Structure formats: structure tokens, C-alpha cells
Computed example of a mutant assay.
Amino acid sequence: MWALGAWVLLGAVCAGSAQLQFNVIKSVEQTICNQTVILPCIVTNLAQKNTKVMFVKWKLEKKEFFSFSGETEMSHTNENFSSAKLESLQNLKLGVASLTISKTQAVPGNYSCEVTESNREGETVIELVYRIVSWFTPIENSLIILFMVLAILFYWIQLAITVSKFETTLLKISLFIAGVVISVFAVVGFSLLISDEFMPENQIGLGLIVLPAVILVPSQYFLLQKVCENNLSLAIGVVVLESLGYLIAVIGFGLCVTACRPINGAVVIAGLAIMALTPVVGLIHAILTRSSKKDQASTHN
């Protein structure tokens, strides 16, 4: 009786030791920004820690597409997963059987990792989930559009207030064309910038918003020159600040355009904010000057 009990206990211990255990990771995310996808598979209770006695098998929805034999150090892949390989062959003996796959071949679904060490084996399942990501966040998109719209709006208001002051028709037409051009570029840029998922068109859209904004700088000077006839230092100061804002926006654009998920969106926003809010000084001056002249005219009458 004692022998039977010992045999049962020994069998239970052996059965337990035959099962490999894993770090439980239920899912991993893939986005358009990933160049490769890493499917984690980490065994926590290897005994021999010798790749020669290990065998790894990966399946997608129970269909095998990758296998590796430690004895021969050879791997076999399905043609649809030709990029699949172990993340680190050296770390396999430590229990790391994670797999890397190129983003073009990584298919969302349930992947299973089977590891064998001599007569011990185990399996874990990881779900690969595709997550849609936009280039900028919705708030960043909104602020970029808002400040560009304000910059263009204030330009048109200033043009409407000062258009009668220009002596030459050519300058009036030039400033009007400048406003139309920057407005068209901005509208096209807005339409390309906003999308549910990152696309190369987003980068083109930001470029159409930021780069043509340089048109506002010289145009702003001509507008303020007429308004601030007796205070050109104010006009020059406004234009210098607006130029600084444009420079900051261009630097931000350069930092963002090469990134799949830009982390310097605040630089672009800051530059556009300066470009939008600085001309308000000139606009207020123009409105006050016009009101003052109307009051003087009414007094003389």
C-alpha cells in the first residue's frame, strides 16, 4: 500500500514537471508604424537550458507556419511567413522563444507557441491585434487647423481694412492673390492632414499648411506699412515676430515629417500660434486708427 502511494505521488510530480510554463501575455498590438512585429513566448521553468534538446513550433489559428530544431539549428517557415525568425537564438536556452515577423506578413489572429525541452512541453496563445493610429492626435490636428485659420482670417480682415490705402492697383491685386493662394494651400492641406489612420498624405498636408505660410510674412509687412505710417517700428516688430513664428513652425515640420508618430507636434502648433496671434496687434492698431480718423472727420464736419 505504501509503495502504491509513493508511486502515485512520484507520478504526479513527474507529470507536473513535464509541463512547461510561460509568461502569460494575452495579446500584442500592431500598428502601421511597426516595421516588425514581435510575438512574445517566454518559458519560465526550463530545466536543462540547452538549445540542443529544444524544439519550437509556431502556429496561426492552429496551422503551423514556423518551426525550429535546436538539435540541427535549422528553421522551417511557410512561404507566407518567410520573414519569421526567432527573436534571439542565444536567448532560446533561457526560455525566450519569441518570434519576429515583418509587418507586411504579420496577420492579425491567434498565434500559438509550442516549446519542447526533451520530454517536457508546453504551449501558450497570443492574439495579435491591429490598432488604427492617426498621425497627430485629434487635439493637435484641431489646434494646427485653428491657428492657421486664424492667421488667414486676420490677414483678410487687415486687407479689407487697409485696401483703400494702397495707391497702386498692382499691390492690391498682389496682396489679394497672396491671400487666395495661402487660403487654397491651407484648405488642401487640411483635407490631407486629417485621416483616421496615418498615411503619407498626412505629411504632404502638413507641408501645404506650414511651408506656404511664408507668404503671410511679406504680405503682412505691406499691410502694416500702410496702417502704421507713423510707427514703422511697430510694423517691423510684428513682422519679425511673425517670421520667428514661421521659423518655429518650419522646424517643427522638419522634426515631425520623418516620424510615423510625431512627438514634436507642439513645436508646429507653437509656431502657427505665434503667426496667428502676432498680427492681432497690427489689426487692433488698424481698427483704432480707422476709428480715430472717423471721429476726427465727424468733429470737423
Rank of each mutant, 00 (worst) to 15 (best):
E29R: 10
A276W: 05
V180Y: 09
L283R: 05
Y221E: 01
T116E: 10
Q48W: 09
V217M: 08
Q19E: 08
P279Q: 00
I194A: 00
A97L: 08
T116C: 03
L193S: 06
L192V: 03
W58Y: 12
R131S: 13
G109I: 05
A12L: 15
T168Q: 10
S88R: 04
V115G: 00
A160Q: 09
F154R: 04
P279V: 03
I269P: 05
A15T: 08
K93I: 03
I263G: 10
Y130G: 01
E229I: 14
H285K: 15
E87T: 12
T137R: 13
N78T: 04
V214A: 12
L208C: 07
A297Y: 11
G179V: 10
S69I: 02
N231G: 13
L241N: 06
A286M: 05
T137V: 08
A84H: 01
I274C: 02
K49E: 06
F136Q: 00
C256P: 00
T299F: 15
G245V: 08
F136V: 04
A6Q: 15
I248F: 02
F65P: 04
Q158F: 09
K103R: 14
V180G: 05
E201S: 15
S69K: 03
P40Q: 12
E197Q: 09
K52M: 07
N45H: 03
W2A: 14
T77A: 10
E242A: 11
G237Q: 03
A160L: 07
E242R: 14
I194G: 06
V125G: 04
D295P: 07
N141I: 08
V43I: 09
V125Y: 00
I139S: 03
V24R: 11
L20G: 01
T116Y: 08
T258N: 13
S83A: 01
Q48V: 11
P200H: 00
G254L: 04
S83M: 04
S118A: 13
L153K: 10
N45I: 01
N202Q: 11
G254A: 11
I263A: 15
M199W: 08
Q21I: 12
L20H: 04
